[in-house]
């Protein structure tokens, strides 16, 4: 009988045999090799049902609905993710593709898989901890970023303790894992504007305490990416109150002024975009104003010579001219 022949298994049978195979793989007994083969085979069959192949369209909605229902009933998604490191190379990718496809299922305005995952948040936490393991990090990353597109799932991740592990993941020494983690981290902090703003407000001290470490990272790319993201967060109008809070802290101003002088031109440039907010603030608290006043001449001089070769960037030049003017006109406050 051909391996991928016409005798099609029903979704229930497929899910059952995949589950048996993953369970056998998890036990890791002497039948592990056979289990590995069965896992790959069944994953591929499920993937082809969902995506179709070069000569076949995806299965009908009814079949896909049955498949999804079986996946929920058996908790197979969680089992697959928990055993992802045991599954072979192509199988790992198939898991991510099956997961991402099922995640997008919609019935009218409902997303049944999203609802299911809300009742099984371990799925999300297991995915997040995938960044601890080099060989599955990017597979987990692609699934996490798809999850982060759904507000309900993003909320679970943001408000979990595990979220703070991202501050470690984005700094690991292997660039590909660090940058994958950063993409997910950024997605979580920027995708759903209102959710993110509420989260940042409620957890301001904890988040920005951790964030400080990224800005001071030894790793150039981490420093640059996190500084750029900080600029984006502060300048987003949804985050107005977070921005107001950030720019009242003189330590933050000092950090940005030092970053303006970093050797890296990219970091200087990103720092400029955060620094400008401190200067443009019409209600500068005294400690901020004092620092700016103490460095008034130096700042004017520094900014005048700052990135003079960016002549084609009109917005930057306008902003720079505005900052120089503002700083020149600074006067000690009356209160």
């Amino acid at each position: 009988m051909p391996l991928f022949g016409k005798s099609q298994k029903s979704p229930a049978e497929l899910v059952r045999s995949l589950k048996d195979a993953v369970t056998a793989l998890e036990r890791g007994d002497k039948k592990a090799e056979k289990a590995q083969e069965d896992v790959s085979k069944n994953l591929l069959l499920i993937k082809n049902m969902l995506y179709g192949t070069s000569d076949a369209e995806p299965q009908t909605d009814i079949i896909v609905a049955q498949l999804a229902q079986e996946l929920y009933n058996t908790n197979l998604l969680l089992l697959l993710i928990q055993n992802l490191n045991r599954i072979d190379f192509e199988g790992k990718k198939d898991v991510a593709q099956v997961f991402n496809n099922v995640l997008r299922r919609q019935i009218g305005t409902r997303s049944p898989t999203v609802e299911y995952i809300c009742t099984k948040p371990e799925i999300l936490f297991t995915l997040m901890s995938g960044y601890e393991h080099q060989e599955i990090a990017s597979n987990c990353g692609t699934m996490l970023r798809e999850c982060a597109r759904y507000e309900a799932l993003a909320k679970i991740m943001l408000y979990s303790d595990d979220f703070y592990n991202f501050f470690r993941y984005v700094e690991v020494s292997t660039f590909d894992i660090a940058s994958d983690a950063f993409s997910t981290f950024k997605e979580l902090l920027t995708r759903h504007k209102i959710l993110c703003a509420e989260f940042l407000e409620a957890n301001y001290d904890k988040v920005f305490g951790h964030y400080q470490r990224l800005l001071n990272s030894e790793n150039y790319v981490t420093r640059r990416q996190s500084l750029k993201l900080l600029g984006e967060l502060l300048l987003d109008r949804h985050n107005f109150s977070i921005m107001t809070r950030y720019i009242t802290n003189p330590d933050n101003l000092k950090l940005m002024m030092n970053m303006l002088k970093e050797k890296s031109r990219n970091i200087q440039f990103e720092a400029f975009h955060v620094f400008k907010v401190f200067v443009a603030n019409p209600n500068k608290p005294k400690p901020i104003l004092d620092i700016l006043l103490r460095n008034q001449d130096k700042l004017v001089d520094f900014l005048t010579k700052f990135h003079t070769d960016r002549c084609e960037d009109e917005q930057f030049n306008d902003e720079k001219a505005y900052l120089i003017k503002q700083i020149k006109e600074l006067k000690p406050s009356e209160h």
């Binding site: 000092k254 002024m257 002088k261 050797k263 620092i291 103490r294 460095n295 130096k298 001089d301 520094f302």
Partner: peptide
């Protein structure tokens, strides 16, 4: 490079 020293 000759850099500015800020006065904090």
């Amino acid at each position: 490079e000759k850099t500015t020293e800020w006065d904090f």
